[in-house]
Amino acid sequence: MARKISMKMAINEAIDQEMTRDPTVIMMGEDIVGGAGGQGEQDAWGGVLGVTKGLYAKHPDQLLDTPLSESAYIGTAIGAAASGMRPIAELMFIDFMGVCFDQIFNQAAKFRYMFGGKAETPVVIRAMVGAGFRAAAQHSQMLTPIFTHIPGLKVVCPSTPYDTKGLLIQSIRDNDPVIFCEHKNLYGFEGDVPEKSYTVPLGEANVTREGKDVTLVAYGLMAHRALEAAGLLAKDGIEAEVIDLRTLSPLDLDTVLESVEKTGRLVCVDEANPRCNIATDVSARVAMEAFGALKAQIEMVAPPHVPVPFSPALEDLYIPSGAQIADAARRTFARGKT
């Protein structure tokens, strides 16, 4: 039966149910078991924000605390995946991914291709993404486009607890490496989630609001801001359709194209920096494949091309707002042909 739980609890429940279903599902990461500076394994905290709290007591043979060495344990997880396990590696902040790029880009992403399809790498690398947490430039980035650039990786960034549980279970069952991006400012966001196990397929966008006038494409925290913008636009009599991409690789371009063919207007929203991000990718693909349907220029709403500021006032300005998205949608009416 469905009840309201937070996105954080949805992650915990997905891992718990998959570990129960399949003993080859294991997890490793920093402080996921002990945490809080305790002595040895004690399940004191469950990771930096408590996502894995309680899992060690239920599955003591399936969770492992690692040293503070991302290069080592991400490599270990990828190796374990290639040898028959289904590891979940928690990398805390996606900002730390840089020290594991060889393991991820050159190893995990390439095995299937370089070994003629004989090697599979069913690893999930979970990491927190996004700004708004007052955690400054090195703990706040939205680095999703770095991973969508690499063939062989699947990239997920959910916006609701329901999607989070279903997409994480599907990611664990998937036979390819998945970079699972969790927006830290959505950890407390609550929604209806069934108690039982279920899946949401990778590569399927979700239309979260229907409208005929303009299409807003977003993911993660921005999916919520786009809905907020749609609410503002409705007051002006503009019916916005909102698409939450949910999975960034593979990308569900069909859902975007279908919508743009109906609305003729497109606003791409991204919390990632504006050069070569998901929004530029979607914009380019729509311009190539549905140019005839467009009634106006495509708009993009993204932060400025600077690191996430430490000043709370500047950080709030940095993150695209619902009002900015609504303004961008209005520009497609002001400048576009009718």
Partner: peptide, 11 residues
């Protein structure tokens, strides 16, 4: 449609 898909996607 969403509700039906959610049902069909239960294990």
């Amino acid at each position: 449609l969403d509700d039906m898909l959610k049902y069909k996607r239960m294990d």
